Simulated scan of single mutants.
Amino acid sequence: MATTPMVPPNPASAGNPNFDAPPPMAAPPPPGTDMTGICFRDQLWLNTYPLDRNLVFDYFALSPFYDYTCNNEQLRLRSIHPLDHSQLLKMTGIEYMLSEVTEPHLFVIRKQKRDSPEKVTPMLTYYVLDGSIYQAPQLCNVFAARVGRALYHISKAFTTAASKLEKIGFVDAENENTVPESKATKEAIDFKELKRLDHILASLQRKLPPAPPPPPFPEGYAPPTAEGEKSSENQQADTQPPVDPIIDQGPSKRRKF
């Protein structure tokens, strides 16, 4: 909000010991310091005057960000528009310049130091957003804030992971107490030893000569196969059926009494 000027002491109360004077108000920080946490807004002025490129500097001059030692203030005292660029080029020192304008919502004002008509050193940047005046943070402060926020989230993630790992360790300890035999069997298997044994066997297999081929079968001999054995058994079953001496021999082969 707009700063209230200090009230001068009442002459009638001077010298009166029974009169308690109000405590003095704290002075705002001087312009040029870190004032990123301050927001200025004068709603009465905004309701009275339009906020455009011609009157925005007069509105900015009411804020605690304004430096009364600037060249713009000297132009105001001479009834010249404070943002007259042709007049500012003839002067040296601290000045304010309107860099970007998006009427009536955004106005960017840059504070700079002019050493010559061609040499200008930027110092700070302010912006008027919908009637509220802010000081833009510097780039180093933005990087420091972003890095600090990232480190905070990283440390929080590590803390959460550590707490979960501790819970997993407690569960493993309970399982060790409940099932000791399964842990003993797991510890009995050494995967490194198995890999070493497989490596030794593979190296020995590469050193040994290949196995010789089997000897050939003699002439006229056909090795039996599973299908051939089945077919021969079926043929024998068809050619030699079981014979009944009474029923299947017929009347001509029966004995005559």
Rank of each mutant, 00 (worst) to 15 (best):
L51M: 15
Y96R: 01
G131A: 01
Y126A: 02
D172H: 09
E174H: 10
P224Q: 04
G250S: 08
Q240E: 14
S252G: 12
P214I: 02
Q43E: 15
M35H: 00
P29R: 02
L124A: 03
Y49T: 07
D20I: 12
Y134S: 03
A136N: 06
L139G: 06
A161F: 08
D67C: 07
C70H: 02
S13D: 13
P22E: 10
D190N: 14
D20G: 05
P29S: 04
P242Q: 12
H199C: 06
G228Y: 05
Y68Q: 04
S203N: 10
G32K: 06
R255Q: 11
Y59K: 04
A2T: 09
P8E: 03
T159G: 12
H199T: 09
N71M: 08
K113R: 11
N175S: 05
I246D: 09
R146K: 14
V56Y: 03
N177M: 12
D248I: 03
P214K: 02
P216S: 05
N18V: 03
I246V: 13
L46Q: 07
P17H: 10
V101G: 00
K230A: 15
L89S: 02
K186W: 07
K207L: 06
T4H: 07
N16P: 01
Q135I: 00
A145K: 12
P64A: 02
K156S: 11
E233K: 12
N141L: 13
S203P: 00
T185S: 08
L208D: 03
R41M: 09
R114S: 05
S232F: 14
L106P: 02
I189E: 04
D172Y: 11
Q87H: 11
E187Y: 11
V243Q: 12
F107T: 01
P29I: 01
T92C: 15
P122R: 09
R254M: 14
P104K: 07
P242H: 15
L208T: 08
Y134T: 04
Q112A: 06
D115G: 08
P137T: 04
D130T: 09
M35E: 07
A188G: 01
P28W: 01
G220D: 01
M1C: 03
P23G: 10
S99C: 11
Y66I: 04
N175E: 07
I168M: 13
N175D: 08
M35G: 01
L46E: 01
I109G: 03
K167G: 06
G93T: 11
Q205C: 05
K113A: 09
P24D: 05
Y126W: 08
C140L: 07
Q249V: 14
D52H: 11
L151I: 06
T92S: 15
P28T: 09
D238V: 09
N177L: 14
Y96K: 00
N141H: 15
E174A: 13
N141Y: 15
P22Q: 09
I247K: 13
P122E: 06
D58N: 13
L44I: 06
Y68A: 04
P215S: 02
P11V: 11
T239S: 07
V179M: 08
D238T: 09
F40V: 01
P8Q: 04
S155A: 14
K90T: 13
P210H: 06
M25I: 08
P180L: 13
Y68E: 03
N175Y: 10
